[in-house]
Amino acid sequence: MLHQTYPQVSHPYRYELNKDFHFAAAHYVPSEEAGKCRRMHGHTYFANVTVAGDELDSSGFLVNFSLIKKLIHDRFDHTVLNEDEESFGDERPERFPTTEVVARTICELVQEHLDGTSNKPVCVQVFLRETPTSYCVYRPLRKGGGERG
């Protein structure tokens, strides 16, 4: 993978981990305003997931790099995103598999896993490149007390 510089996210944590990976998937955006994107088409998505926290787990990891890739790559690679009815849908815009919604979904899936770990790190940012010239950055809203999640 080529070296990529990503937007930085400010957070109060001691550790920050970034995992790059890619996956190939098809989708369509079920909206009149989507233009050509209303038709089924595919992308090789390039993602960067940023996880932060103060404590390491019993293996000395904030989170294992391979786990982040497995959570997303195994679920979305070589799929039609619209067919993942748990994550996406054709009825409401907030569930259409746009780059923005896919980035948010990646964050939510990673955070769901992190919530079950002993050291409780947080997913603070997902950078998702859909094409060489188009990408989205998703950062979850901060909860009370300065924590993210």
Rank of each mutant, 00 (worst) to 15 (best):
M1F: 13
H3I: 13
H3P: 02
T5V: 05
T5I: 10
Y6M: 05
Y6G: 04
P7Y: 14
P7S: 10
P12D: 10
P12V: 08
Y13F: 11
Y15D: 05
Y15C: 05
E16D: 05
L17K: 09
L17Q: 14
K19V: 07
F21T: 01
F21V: 09
F21R: 01
F23H: 03
F23Q: 01
F23T: 00
A24P: 00
A25I: 07
A26I: 03
V29P: 08
V29G: 01
P30F: 03
E33R: 14
A34C: 04
K36N: 07
M40H: 08
M40I: 09
H41L: 08
H41S: 09
G42K: 08
G42Y: 14
G42R: 11
N48A: 06
N48V: 04
V49L: 04
T50P: 00
V51H: 06
V51N: 10
A52R: 05
G53F: 09
D54H: 13
E55L: 15
E55D: 15
L56E: 10
D57Q: 13
S58E: 14
G60Q: 10
S66F: 01
S66E: 14
L67C: 11
K69I: 05
K70L: 08
K70I: 02
I72D: 00
H73F: 11
D74P: 01
D74L: 07
F76G: 09
D77F: 03
H78K: 06
V80F: 13
L81H: 03
L81P: 02
D84K: 08
E85G: 02
E85R: 15
E85N: 00
E85S: 00
E86Y: 01
F88Q: 04
E91Q: 07
E94A: 09
E94S: 13
P97M: 12
T98H: 01
E100V: 02
E100N: 01
E100M: 00
V101R: 10
A103Y: 03
A103K: 00
T105M: 07
T105N: 09
C107G: 13
C107V: 00
E108L: 11
E108K: 06
L109V: 03
H113C: 06
L114V: 07
D115L: 10
G116D: 09
S118G: 13
P121A: 15
C123S: 10
V124M: 06
Q125G: 10
V126H: 05
L128C: 03
R129N: 11
R129I: 09
E130Q: 13
T131C: 11
T131K: 04
P132R: 14
P132W: 11
S134D: 05
Y135P: 08
R139Y: 07
L141G: 10
R142F: 12
G145S: 01
G146S: 15
R148M: 15
G149I: 09
